[in-house]
């Protein structure tokens, strides 16, 4: 977003542009549905007053705080989604225990490193989801996102040499692959499966 406007060499544009008014309407309706659901959950029960109130508040939010359209060209694959969720929980637990351990280990000063990882599917949605997931899994934290080239800059905690940087890079790309398998479109999926894990990721 704040990166230099250097065009990515092979970025295929942020997914499909312009699915027409119908697609935009569908997105708005889905968003409204979510807002009504959140509103009802906040009040704690589902009745007509909450439904109407949720529709009013949700509609107002959508009108007064419009968001840029997120092009969701993929579809949900429940099996892959389960795999992603399961691995996510496992990695969240192991990452937490790891950080907790080095936090209480006496006299230990962890070293870190900042690595650049160029994602293979540079769509906004994938970038955001991967960044979120990566922040919570072992030893990595997003510092900067270069939206134009689809590059994430990560801070890696507790490194012991150059090998650990490659491990972090590979792990990030693995997370990306799991996300694309779960929610990506067919074209993105092909891209992920055919590309060999890119090593030279510097922009």
């Amino acid at each position: 977003m704040t990166g230099p406007p250097e065009p990515a060499p092979d970025a295929p544009g942020p997914a499909t542009v312009g699915r027409g008014r119908l697609g935009r309407w569908r997105d708005q309706v889905v968003a409204l549905g979510w807002l009504v659901a959140v509103w009802s959950l906040l009040w704690g029960d589902l009745n007509w007053a909450n439904l109407v109130g949720g529709l009013l508040v949700g509609g107002a939010v959508l009108v007064f705080y419009p968001l840029p359209a997120v092009s969701f060209g993929g579809r949900l694959r429940p099996g892959a989604l389960l795999v992603f969720a399961g691995r996510f929980v496992i990695e969240l637990v192991s990452a937490s225990l790891h950080v907790a351990r080095i936090a209480v280990q006496p006299g230990y000063r962890p070293r870190g490193a900042i690595v650049a990882v160029r994602l293979r599917v540079p769509s906004d949605l994938n970038l955001a989801l991967t960044a979120e997931a990566v922040s919570l899994v072992p030893g990595t934290l997003i510092l900067e996102v270069d939206r134009d080239s689809g590059t994430l800059y990560l801070h890696v905690l507790d490194t012991h040499g150059p090998g650990d940087l490659e491990v972090a890079r590979d792990r990030t790309l693995t997370v990306e692959r799991r996300i694309v398998r779960a929610v990506g479109s067919a074209a993105e999926l092909r891209r992920i499966e055919t590309d060999s894990p890119a090593k030279g990721t510097r922009s």
């Binding site: 969240l92 990452a95 937490s96 225990l97 790891h98 950080v99 907790a100 351990r101 080095i102 936090a103 209480v104 000063r109 962890p110 870190g112 922040s135 919570l136 030893g139 934290l141 510092l143 801070h155 905690l157």
Partner: peptide, 22 residues
């Protein structure tokens, strides 16, 4: 453990790790 990490880690970037995962 997260609180101890925030307190003990040497710089802001490391501290953010403690503030997210655990």
């Amino acid at each position: 453990a997260a609180a101890i990490g925030v307190l003990r880690f040497p710089d802001a970037l490391s501290r953010m790790h403690a503030a997210t995962k655990p």
